[in-house]
Each structure stands twice: as structure tokens, then as C-alpha cells.
Amino acid sequence: MIRIEGLTHKYEGREEEAVNNINLQIKKGESLVVIGSSGSGKSTLLKCINRLIDPTSGKIYIEEKEILNCDIHHATKIRGSIGMIFQEYNLVESESVLKNVLNGRLKYLSTVQTLFGKFSKEDIAIAKENLKVVGLGEYENERVSNLSGGQKQRVAIARALSQNPAVILADEPVSSLDPKLMKEVMDLLTTICKEKGITLITSLHFLEFAKRYGTRIIGMKEGNIVFDGLPEELTEKDIVDIYGKTKEWFLYGKTGF
């Protein structure tokens, strides 16, 4: 479903590549977890897939369509079919829960309709339905700033689902949550994606989570993929390869949860 060939990205003013010659194929419905230390290139890889970052070189095919060489209009369309969930939720805090979820329907609206906030009845019904799916049906009129971290991430999931996506990219979706909420959110996200046949690509810090929620794991170090396999294939040696014997190895790799 997603094929990445020779993907390289270098940030301006940096000497080393954030991701370096990545080659990857992701099957439809897969739950791929990307692990690695901070700065290993996990986020950059995810952001290249929906072109939030335009990579320096390489090719990305989604359903056999190359997405990096297309015009901005086409890129926007592709982006619309990929939901994204962020570590810090990235919601409009001063707006209601429903309004935030409705932002997932913007690709179906014209600019004039957006200006007047004219969402169709169908859009509103879809947004409300997705709020029910994430267990926040009663919170539609609540201001986002009044919600807890776990609830905010559920709103973000509902926003991504409202895009009716084929793929969801989750960039460290539980890093801002406490362990109990981490599990709740990951359970919810993986269950929904499995039910709806959505391909899920998640970057995670904690190994135990990666093993539990991934059907496949890739390990990144300094912009390169140093492990690609099934969760049960991940050995102690691989973990040291990915994290090195650093503080992060002890924190995320060795202890886990």
C-alpha cells in the first residue's frame, strides 16, 4: 500500500540527514510501530509520508501513486486521505470538541463554506458518530481546554477518523499521557484501526507498547532503519543496536512497562 524508496531528508543548517536512504513497504491494514531514540528520525519519516515535510530526495508511493512529485493541489488531496495524531494533540483549545472534530471534514468543504462554517448534515453526523466511537459522545459542546490529556487525544483520534482515512500516522501519540491513559488510548486507536482496516503507523518510545500494539516493528537509529521485523523477533541485541546503552535504553528499552 505504501512504498518508500531512497527517502532522504536533511534539515536546513544541519550536517547530518534526519532520515537517510529509507526503503520500506507497508501493507494495507498493518500496524507498524517505529521505535528509536529522540532525534532518530521517527517523526521526520512520518511527516514525509503526508508531506508535512517535503523530503530532500526519494520517492513515496501510496496505492502505486507517487506523491512527492505531484502539484500542491494533489498533495493536499493525498494529505486528506491520511489522518495524523500528534503527541501534544494539536487541537484548537478555545473551540468546542465538535468543532475540532469537524476540522477532519474540511477537505469536503469549499473555502466559502468554511468561511461561513457551513458543514453539511452528513459531516456533522460523521463527526458526532466518531465522537461516540472514541467515547466522547456527551462532550461535543465542551471546550477542549476543559478536557484531560487522555480526552484530548481521543478528540484528536476522532478528528483523524472524520477524514475517513486509509492511513493514520500517530507521532508519539501517548508520550504526554500517564501510563494508564497511554494504554487506554493505544487500545482504542489500534482497535478502531483494526476494525476499519486502516493502516496505522505509530512512533513510540516504549518497547513493551511497541511489542503489544505493533504487528511489525522498525527500529531507527541516526536516520537509518536498523531493525525491521515482527515484534517477537526483536532481541536484546537489536534493542541495544537501536538505543545504544544510553539512558533512553534503560528508560524505554530495558524497563518498559
Binding site: 503526508n50 508535512l52 493536499t76 488531496k77 493525498i78 494529505r79 486528506g80 486521505s81 491520511i82 489522518g83 495524523m84 500528534f86 494539536n90 487541537l91 484548537v92 476540522n103 477532519g104 474540511l106 477537505k107 468543504l109 473555502t111 468554511t114 468561511l115 484528536a156 478528528r159 477524514q163
Partner: peptide, 17 residues
């Protein structure tokens, strides 16, 4: 960025983001 990632165009990003 979050609004952009939903497939919104630039004017929609100004209005909603």
C-alpha cells in the same frame, strides 16, 4: 500543521487554524 494534515487548503488553515 494539524489542520494542514487534514487536507485543508491554505485559506481553510487561516480560517480554522
Amino acid at each position: 500543521k494539524a489542520i494542514l494534515s487534514t487536507g485543508a487548503n491554505k485559506i481553510q488553515v487561516v480560517i480554522k487554524g
